[in-house]
Amino acid sequence: MATTATYQPTADDYKINPKKFALWAAIASICMFFIGITSAFIVKKGADVANGHWMFFKMPVIFYFSTAAIVLSSVSLFFAKKFFLKGDKQGYQISMLISSLLGTAFLVMQYLGWKALVSIGVYLGGSLSNPSGSFFYIISGTHALHILGGLIIMYWATIKAFVRQTNVQSKLGIELISTYWHFVDFLWLYLFAMLLFF
């Protein structure tokens, strides 16, 4: 048997790092989840508006601020990556910290937004609820879970950025984090537009 081949694969054999690739596939998967939910939302709304069941309400204004926060956190993460690649340690640390804080602000504001919804009588469930409100909570809520996951990793990376002595570290980490974070940011913009306009 020919087991005596002499080749050892190296990085050049792979067009894209498997972990990055797996992240992209995961993103496709998350997209399908939200496509599923938002298409249910569109179909249901279409039917309910037609038969007068749909409850319309005004989106609390705090959601506009949270949207701004998540966009800004993406911007600062964009710079964080730049600083990282340039080897600017301090810039990297600061911008990571800002991104994490903005991400946290986003979650806090989402929470305040849900409270504002309750105060205007829009509920997740129960006899007073309407699918329009339930969809709002579930779409923004499941999105918030995806933010939470990213945020945990972001804090971990931020702490590492401060604690770590050396400048040399994996470029892969920051690449994975920024891909994911920009994705959940765009995802929110899509969901926000969906909830606002459709």
Partner: peptide, 25 residues
């Protein structure tokens, strides 16, 4: 699987909410 299981997840999630939180999807 990657493309279809998440949709089942969203489907199941709405059912969970209907069962336990009184939503009416």
């Amino acid at each position: 699987g990657i493309l279809s299981f998440p949709v089942l997840l969203s489907c199941a999630l709405l059912l969970i909410f209907d069962r336990s939180l009184g939503t009416s999807f």
